[in-house]
């Protein structure tokens, strides 16, 4: 692996942070308060970009999982893992943000509404993928398990998106450019692009680490745990 991809990861991350900072500055200090929600409505500029990008990162992870099973290449295993991890971080953040937005607006921190329930399932499902990955030592089996689990967990992504249309919910339906004032749409889009660029940087960085870890594992497959007791048994007989 070259260090060029590190430069790319660093550049995307820093650029993403800068764009997001600009978007948030506009959203917090320039854009107007919302007619009903007041200043609380400014949470829009961080919550909605987090949601969109979590879904995009999972979509990339889904594609990587398909490629991982099709080609069997280690690099796709690393891409899948990196995307699942970054997407899970964004989803957990999303749940905390949403909860802190719900209290002043809806009146409760949490309710088992379809959007909230399916989002919680999303975080849990991809959390399980990461856990599963840690439990399997054998690289080829781990690659298959990770990819299959990622594809299955991904089913929840379109369900989360459509939940507000398919079922009665407390959460509002998706906003469109028509339902958001222009002065609010600008910081929303800038922040969304910023967090997208940041997420790309994070996925590349995590991919580098995971690739190096898998390569090291292949070169030195001295797994200390599982086989050891068996050998001792055989020798003592």
């Amino acid at each position: 692996m070259t260090s060029r991809s590190y430069t790319v990861a660093l550049a995307f991350t820093l650029l993403g942070v800068a764009i997001t900072a600009i978007g948030h500055a506009i959203g917090l200090f320039v854009a107007p308060a919302e007619a009903m929600m007041g200043d609380v409505g400014r949470i829009l500029y961080v919550h909605v970009p987090t949601a969109w990008n979590a879904m995009l990162v999972f979509l990339f992870g889904f594609g990587a999982a398909v490629a991982s099973l099709w080609t069997g290449r280690r690099r796709w295993d690393a891409w899948t893992t990196a995307a699942v991890e970054v997407g899970t971080v964004l989803t957990l953040l999303l749940l905390v943000q949403g909860s802190l937005w719900a209290k002043p607006t809806w009146g409760v921190y949490w309710t088992w509404d379809p959007r909230l329930t399916t989002s919680a399932v999303l975080g849990a499902a991809f959390g399980v993928v990461l856990l599963l990955r840690r439990l399997i030592d054998q690289p080829a089996r781990r690659q298959v398990a990770t990819a299959v689990a990622t594809i299955v967990a991904f089913v929840d992504v379109p369900i989360v998106y459509m939940s507000v249309r398919w079922w009665n919910s407390l959460h509002q339906t998706q906003s469109t450019p028509k339902t958001i004032d222009k002065m609010m749409a600008v910081p929303l889009w800038v922040s969304a692009v910023g967090i997208l660029v940041l997420s790309i940087g994070l996925v590349i960085a995590r991919w580098r680490t995971e690739t190096a870890r898998l390569a090291a594992e292949e070169r030195a497959p001295d797994l200390p745990d599982a086989p050891a007791p068996l050998h001792l048994d055989q020798e003592s007989r």
Binding site: A35, G107, L170, Q172
Partner: peptide, 22 residues
Amino acid sequence: KVMVKHSNEYRAPTDGGDVKDL
């Protein structure tokens, strides 16, 4: 428990405007 539902519309406040449009 009473919970309030916000619509998917985000509008700047209007001066004494008709909130029913929202």
